[in-house]
Design a protein around this nucleic acid. Structure first.
Lengths: 325, 325
DNA sequence: TTGTAGGCGTTATCAA
DNA sequence: TTGATAACGCCTACAA
């Protein structure tokens, strides 16, 4: 485009960027008309090149099954798009590997994004490295101003709540259940760490951990093996609702009385645990609240309006009181 | 970067773009080493500007709960990255809205991607519009060469299989269950269409449809309402495993004998249906097979190696034989 | 086998 | 109030 309007390229640039006041209305019209005629869309590439930075924001999705990735993306890209950014999602390939994801680094180098939003799956080291590439990084870790501590880590808190619930329901022996073969699953360590912390605080032994295959037979033998070493009642904090559900039915089919002999608590990951019978006891994480920090950080970083205040009593997470613990 | 290797920028460009043969191995090494040292990644902006097209490929994720989005992205971006492309994911915001997503169009305009891979959530009209933006579009619809027909639509096939199974198990009355409030959920119409087709083929009445809330009370009253109009046995094809599970427990708690009075079949969306008791009957979709078409299309479009041949007997989908239908 | 030069669309700077 | 002009980083003829 450009000289089609009979003006210089610079003028076009100015007009299209809202510097409308400083020009003759006539000129402005000419430019706008020409742009319309030509179906002209400013090139992101050109802009990025000139500015050294693009209008893209990378949203890094954790390599774990996030049933509500949709909602998360919606919420965040809503905020960001209002500010004129375009959100692209990067889903990490490697799970649990502490090693840096080359893919992500390439993406950052290539795209020179205006920013990067991490949902919590990146290590501090990674984040720093990314930051050194020159793009603002927003993450639960950094958003709170300091290094991640047990206090503000959502996943540690999940574990703590599990421990608290189990203990409150009278289980003195607490163990932790991973999904089979995925001890290194995203946030697994943190969650179990939270359980350990919760146990210590109450003078209980640190939880032993074991693995639960997501099939009936495997789950049954996991339960069997567990009860060879422990005797009921025992409380099980689970990595996920899936693991918890596997245990519930495995225990029942073994003749154990769920909630009496064995207490089971999951981490909410969809409605299934709440519609089955027995209803699963689980930890529910409220998206709006738990994403609040990130949204605020976005506002702080990019200068948009702050997200709506949450009611003071809004808790990031709560226990869904079911029949299993 | 550039002269760090003691060569000119052009040389760098050439080497990094694979024009390896024309240079001294020594030079090539020098360049590569320097690139590695510097952690140099060519700027997408510069490249896009010069070429008029970037190296990004947009993967459009459907606005539906895809538990295995990870795996899908892995598989596809694996193919694509081997060819030197970078995959970014776009998750659609609007569900069921036939209206074009302006977000996606912006993204395409801004990124000028090398291509766009649709997983099946875009309408033909959309796809054409996108194509007109000048970027190759790969989608189940287009990949097969023609407009989408009942024959090759995965979701219609899912419905057909549900109908077949229910009919084979002796249910003469078949109904379709949507998730409450989400009749327009992605692929809902197609799946129910498949059921309808399957019914017609067998001389059964077209399925009535109803909605099932994903909570125990709501599901119970949905079942109640259904049985006010129909009398057992009735077979229910469900939009998802979640819906199916809600129905299973609702029916059981109403005193109905699942599989005897009421047959229920879902669509696999995670292991939960298979670890609970009763084990859910469901339609399993094999990622490798069902993504085969797209991967082949990718190879055709971008010239990479074709994906590994699948065993001849590989079926895109199969019935997981559970206890509920 | 290598380097030079021009251009891609935008923005910033500075001159008219 | 406007309009040249020079980057930005990369690619591709073409020249050396």
């Amino acid at each position: 485009m450009a000289r089609r309007a009979g003006v210089s390229r610079a003028t076009v640039s100015h007009v299209l960027n809202g510097q409308v006041e400083r020009f003759l209305p006539e000129t402005v019209d000419k430019v706008r008309q020409a742009a319309l005629d030509l179906g002209y869309v400013p090139s992101a590439a050109g802009r990025a090149l000139a500015m050294g930075r693009s209008d893209f924001v990378i949203l890094v999705a954790p390599p774990t099954t996030l049933t509500n990735l949709q909602d998360i993306v919606d919420m965040i890209s809503g905020d960001l798009e209002d500010l004129g950014f375009t959100v692209v999602v990067h889903v990490s390939r490697t799970e649990g590997a502490p090693v840096a994801s080359t893919r992500l680094h390439n993406l950052v180098e290539a795209l020179r994004p205006a920013g990067l939003v991490d949902l919590g799956s990146l290590s501090e080291k990674e984040l720093l490295k990314l930051q050194r590439s020159g793009c603002p990084v927003i993450s639960p870790t950094i958003g709170t101003g300091g290094p991640r501590t047990a206090r503000d880590d959502l996943n540690v808190a999940i574990g703590r709540i599990q421990a608290r619930r189990l203990s409150a329901r009278g289980y003195r022996e607490i163990v932790y259940a991973f999904e089979a073969g995925r001890r290194d699953a995203t946030w697994g360590r943190e969650r179990m760490g939270g359980v350990t912390e919760g146990c210590e605080r109450r003078g209980l032994a640190a939880p032993e951990s074991f693995e639960v295959p997501l099939d009936p037979r495997g789950a049954r033998s996991a339960v069997g093996a567990l009860l060879d070493r422990r005797k009921p009642p025992v409380g099980i904090a689970c990595y996920s609702d899936e693991v918890a559900i596997a245990l519930v039915f495995a225990a029942a089919s073994t003749g154990l009385r769920v909630s009496h002999d064995i207490g089971i608590i999951g981490v909410y990951s969809g409605p299934v645990g709440q519609i089955m019978s027995p209803r699963l006891t689980s930890v529910y994480v409220d998206l709006r609240v738990s994403l609040g920090g990130i949204r605020t950080a976005i506002a702080d970083t990019f200068g948009g309006p702050r997200p709506p205040e949450l009611p003071a009593d809004a808790r990031a997470m709560s226990v869904l009181e079911g029949d299993t613990a």
